[in-house]
Every structure is written in structure tokens, then in C-alpha cells.
Simulated assay, not measured.
Amino acid sequence: MGRGIVLVGCLVVAMVACLGGARATEYVVGDSQGWGANITNGYYDEWAANKTFRGGDTLKFVWNGPGNVANVSKEDYDNCTKVTSTFSGGDAVSFTLPENANGPYYFICTVDSDCENGQKLAINVVSLTPTESPNSSASSITAGTLSVLVLLSSSIIAMFRN
């Protein structure tokens, strides 16, 4: 009986470990400050500095009043170029980084002089390591592994009941 409890405990630990696969993270840009024009220059650089962005992660831009966000080139970021291709509407938009993203991404607000006043964000996206899998396949791998573990644990429990 004692061996059965130990085996079941090990299986529970293994199942929990399998659930910890690669998961996408949603970041609210600027946290409680949001994506706003009344931010000091450099605020978004500081906000992003201690975060690790990966493909599949989502950046949620939330603002009050008029606002938008544009994913731009480094040159447009540096010059606060008023590009016409922006995400807007309502008081929030989300931008999901492509699964294969790697390297810098740049975002600005093109309303009035918001970008020049510091409403701009530069992030560095790191590629997934070989042991990590993209989010789309992580859930199917996890689900398959979990199914096998549940079947195995049911078999072991049934074995020790007899």
C-alpha cells in the first residue's frame, strides 16, 4: 500500500511538471500607467528592461482619451514618424508577437506629439530555446503527455486496489 501512495505521488508531480510547458505571456504595456502621453521620457524603456519577451507573447496597449499604436521600423521609432498604419479603436489594442519572433520590435503613438514626449516602446524579443516549443504545439504536447500520465496513473491505482 505504501508503494502505491509513493507511485501516485510521483505521478501527480510528473503531471504538474508537464503542465508547465512553454506558455505565452500577456503584458499590459506600462502596467497600471498604461500606454499614455503623460509619461516621462524613458518610462517605457524602464518598464521593458526587466522583462523577457518571446514569440507568442502579447502586448496589450491600454489608453485613456485619443490614442493608437504603430509597429514601426527603428528609423520611424527614432524619428517619431507619423506612419498611417496604426492599431486603434476603443481604449485598448493587443499585438501578439509572431511565434518565430527574434530581435527588436518598435512601437510608437502617432497622435499629436505623444511619441516625441516619450510614448514609444522598444523591446527585444528572444527566440525560443530548442527545449521550448511554440505555444501552438506546446498545448498539444502537454495534452498528449497528460493523457498518457492519467492513463498510467489509473492503471497503477487499479493494480494496487486488487
Rank of each mutant, 00 (worst) to 15 (best):
L19H: 06
Y27H: 12
A17W: 05
N50P: 01
A14L: 13
T58P: 05
N68F: 01
G20R: 10
K60D: 09
W47P: 02
E26L: 08
A70G: 02
F61Y: 11
V29T: 03
A49W: 06
A70H: 02
G55E: 08
S32A: 13
N71W: 08
G55R: 07
R54I: 10
G65D: 05
C18V: 12
E46A: 15
G30V: 01
E75C: 01
D57F: 10
G55V: 05
A14V: 05
A14T: 06
L19Y: 05
C18A: 13
K74G: 03
A37E: 15
G36S: 13
T58F: 09
G55H: 05
G30E: 07
C18I: 04
V16I: 14
E75D: 14
N50H: 15
A70R: 01
V62N: 08
A22G: 11
G36L: 08
N41A: 14
E75Q: 13
Y27L: 02
A49G: 07
V29Q: 00
K60C: 09
T58N: 07
S73G: 03
G56W: 07
N38D: 15
N64S: 15
G30W: 01
V69L: 00
E75W: 01
W35V: 06
V69P: 02
A14G: 00
N68H: 03
K60R: 14
D57E: 09
N50S: 15
V16R: 05
F53V: 05
T25I: 12
T58A: 13
A48N: 07
Y27P: 00
T25R: 10
N71T: 09
E46I: 14
G21K: 06
G55Q: 07
W47A: 02
F53E: 07
D31C: 02
N68Y: 03
G67K: 05
